[in-house]
Simulated scan of single mutants.
Amino acid sequence: MGKKLLVILCFISSVVFSQENSETNEETEISAIVINAQTDAPMESVHIVNLNQVKGTITNEKGEFTLTAAVNDTLYFSFLGFKSQKIRITNDMFKFKDTKISLTELAYALEEVIVRPYQLTGYLEIDVKNLPINNAYQYSISGLSVGYEAGNKNPSAVTKVLGAILNPADLLRNLFGKKPNQMRKLRKIKEDDQIRNLLASKFDRETLIELLQIEKMDIEDILNNCNYSKSFITTANDLQILDAISGCYEDFKVLNRGKKR
């Protein structure tokens, strides 16, 4: 009888300990399965990002994934051709290991596409001459690890770059100052290979917006004020945009620290 009582007490204490861990938001691993909402089939290679912990992973061939998380963390699910989804972690998701998360396919209405602006002939030698040329030049400055784009190659472009670098007051003080916590996430994002792989395959800025909690317009403002060209802003993938913002922010911190001294 004494042994049975001891076993029951141990079981109760373990359950209570488990509940306390979830209620105190202690980080632990969560497992779930991602499926196609239309077919119920498991989805492989879906990217999952914990927006709070800035950690990422992908699903295996069975649609399964495991990721470190805590109660109330938000998971962001992304897959090409499917609607991205955010899920807030609850206690139930830790208790039940067969949680299924459904993603819905996007319905695209394809419109007629007419290729006529450059009057392509089919002859490479002729068509190459008719295509627009990207005149955005990048300038490197001694002491800084990144280059700066400034549009056309002319003296005013170089002056524009130097003006932004040497004048911290004009270098996005308001944008960076309003989002200090989000900007601090940049380094953590860059250190996670799964997140970097996801960003390298995306061009829509959606994941960056969720990770940094800033608007798409803010991203464009940051890059404009850091003297990146319009062609770079519109054609770069999300990883290149992340690296550009990160480099600009690091330079800003150095210059801002120097001014305070």
Rank of each mutant, 00 (worst) to 15 (best):
L110G: 04
S201K: 10
N237K: 07
S246F: 06
K153E: 07
M93Y: 00
G258L: 12
T235F: 10
K3C: 03
S18G: 12
V7D: 13
S45L: 12
G258H: 04
D251C: 03
I241R: 05
I101V: 10
V34R: 02
V34A: 05
S231H: 14
S102K: 11
P155L: 09
A244G: 06
I141W: 02
V15L: 14
K55A: 08
G56N: 02
I87K: 01
N52S: 12
S145N: 14
Y139E: 00
I214P: 02
G163L: 05
S201I: 01
L103R: 08
L212C: 07
K4Q: 11
G258K: 13
L9E: 13
I233M: 14
I35M: 11
N197L: 13
A70D: 07
E149I: 01
S84I: 04
N130S: 10
Y139L: 08
N36Q: 09
D218P: 01
G258Y: 07
T39G: 12
K216M: 10
E206K: 12
C226Y: 00
N225K: 11
K55G: 04
K83V: 07
K129L: 08
A107C: 01
N72A: 09
P132V: 02
G151Q: 05
D40L: 07
N135C: 05
S229W: 06
N174C: 02
D251H: 13
Y137F: 07
Q119D: 15
E105M: 08
A150F: 13
Q194Y: 14
T234F: 15
Q182D: 15
V158E: 15
F82E: 11
I233A: 00
M43K: 12
E191I: 02
L6D: 14
D192M: 04
M43Q: 14
D251M: 15
F94C: 03
L75M: 13
D192S: 06
F252W: 15
N256R: 11
A32I: 00
D221Y: 09
F82I: 07
H47I: 01
F203L: 05
N36I: 06
T235R: 09
E27L: 07
P155I: 03
N21W: 09
P155Q: 10
G143H: 04
G147D: 12
Q119S: 15
N130E: 13
A107D: 14
K129P: 00
E26K: 14
S231V: 14
V54D: 02
